[in-house]
Design a protein around this nucleic acid. Structure first.
Lengths: 190, 190, 190, 190
DNA sequence: TATGAATGAGCCTTCATTCAT
DNA sequence: AATGAATGAAGGCTCATTCAT
């Protein structure tokens, strides 16, 4: 009794993002994802060879969406100050949507060698973005020595967002203000 | 550092720190801890009702040790600048020793409501420490508005350490310099 | 050797022989056979109702080929001694080509009642062949009492070939000599 | 609710022999063995790390028992003729008890490299036994050339027993007579 | 008729937890 | 209080089979 299903891959991805986001990697099982996607477990394995591979793909897709939005802002003609505000805004919202996904990213980094590659991709995208900001900052006030190690900086920014996100929902506005100020502080813009 | 009276309890804790640190929560099983502690699995359950409870206790103990050292520095008469360097030094070393413990802290925060309490304790201790630094900074240069939300700040510092730690081993010295500069930057000390 | 009319059916059979021979029944899956045959899995089921049925058919086909060759020799005018040598030669080669097929034959015999029929067909063909040899032997030297239970004898011969085949590749020549001597011994021809 | 069970290992082995014998390796699942042994599945894994390991052990145990009996006969003072009769008798009975076990032995030989070792052990034991018979035969009538390749011979004898066993139950007496004659024939004792 | 994605029962294995000793 | 064997639910994954196109 095989059904005919439209956009299976997309449905898997959406189900994956949803479930992994809420429960994290370990507490998510394939049956749950399948049910959420409205398909059979076996079907999952027609698209991804393993739970891990599925997760990594979900992770990538998820960040892809975010980067798409961030890139648009980075390439816009808005003033740096405004860009940072928007950056924080988007990152905050996106990361908030997929809590578990972000954390697993950190967790895996500690246990699974394969994820290093996955992480590197994401980090590199991020570094580029931060670099743009930093270069814009430099042209205005050119002197950040140690802190200019962009790779580390970019990680910290993401992490900061992850952590603040895990707190209560009510203070979102405050959180964002704080983060924007934080980033500007780091970039010597205040 | 509260003296652990019972010999068995202490052995469990030490074994727990050791194993959880290396493997993280999920990849650690009770048998391994028992073996490491030189006792039987059943005995574990005479002291802790569940794996989770055991883990939370381990987590607390583990930070306890770190805070003991940090407090000493905070209360010392060293100049603020020096204090920060030592802080970063100790935190870096301690966190490095217990990778898995730190990451799980983040992971759990997302899935388990019970850990919030555990985390709060740790965070509160941290906030106090950061507060001390900030107050010292203020007395020297009194003007950090938004950033003064200590709670958030303290989290960011810990997180920063976690993340940088997960990278390669070789750059430890550089990492620490970066972090110290980072903290000072945030505290308007540069 | 019955001509296979349909192209698809033949391709399935050839693929089946190839794959089952190498991997045996359990380790072969329908997808692999389909791929090897260059058709879709579904098509397999248009020709055979189940994997087992497919296997049994493959088995039959496979022996069919062998018997075709053996019959030719049995019906030839060569001396008995020469016939036996050729028999062993062909059987050895054929069985060697389809390891997995032979073993499964034994395996199934133990678990599946349906295969009995399949086996019986093969055995009967074999008995006839052995009978021919024995009768020729008898006319020369007429006295094998107990051993003349052809049915059993024929099985033993095939089995012997199966077993010796599973050994190393290097000793093929020796093996064949041994087997020929073995058969002659049994038939009181030495 | 862990029960206290006596002789778990023995019960596992007996259950294993029973189930594997009837169903063979592939068609046997761990749950069935556990149920047959009256224990939980997990308990199985307290004694054997995997299904395969369990099977190999069962195999070994099973033959051990048989060899114990065969050795006794080989070392007795009975006449060669009588020994052979007893050999066949015991082998026939033992192999009959554990159909599937024997066949899997052949099957695995074809697919799993690890079993080669297992098989070698059994074969070597067998060769020794056959050697004893052959040497006794030789001292009486010393001339078997090609057939004296004991290794191959011993395999054929076991195989012969396996195959004849798989037939109907009614002819047991006849089968045994046939086999004894067969062995004697091979050993030039008739 | 051919296709191949969908199905889901079922397998091996793990491991936190229990409890008779 | 300590032991560690027993437990069994649960998870990842496979694959013969079906059926809408």
């Amino acid at each position: 009794m095989p059904k005919v299903i439209d956009d299976v891959e997309k449905r898997i991805q959406e189900a994956g993002i949803k479930v992994f986001s809420v429960r994290g990697y370990v507490d998510t099982d394939m049956k749950t994802i399948a049910k959420e996607a409205g398909i059979a477990v076996g079907t999952l394995y027609n698209y991804y060879p393993s739970k891990k591979e599925l997760f990594f793909n979900i992770l990538e897709i998820s960040w892809e969406e975010t980067f798409f939005q961030l890139d648009k802002i980075a390439n816009s003609q808005k003033p740096l100050d405004k860009k940072i505000d928007l950056f924080v805004d988007i990152l905050y919202k996106e990361i908030n949507k997929r809590q578990g996904l972000g954390f697993e990213l950190i967790r895996f980094n500690n246990t699974d060698p394969q994820i290093k590659t996955e992480l590197d991709k994401i980090n590199q995208r991020f570094e580029k973005l931060i670099l743009v900001l930093i270069q814009e900052a430099d042209s205005e006030e050119a002197e950040h020595k140690l802190l200019s190690e962009e790779a580390k900086l970019s990680k910290l920014v993401v992490l900061s967002l992850l952590v603040l996100n895990s707190d209560c929902e009510k203070e979102q506005k405050k959180d964002k203000e704080f983060l924007a100020a934080f980033v500007k502080r780091i970039l010597y813009l205040d």
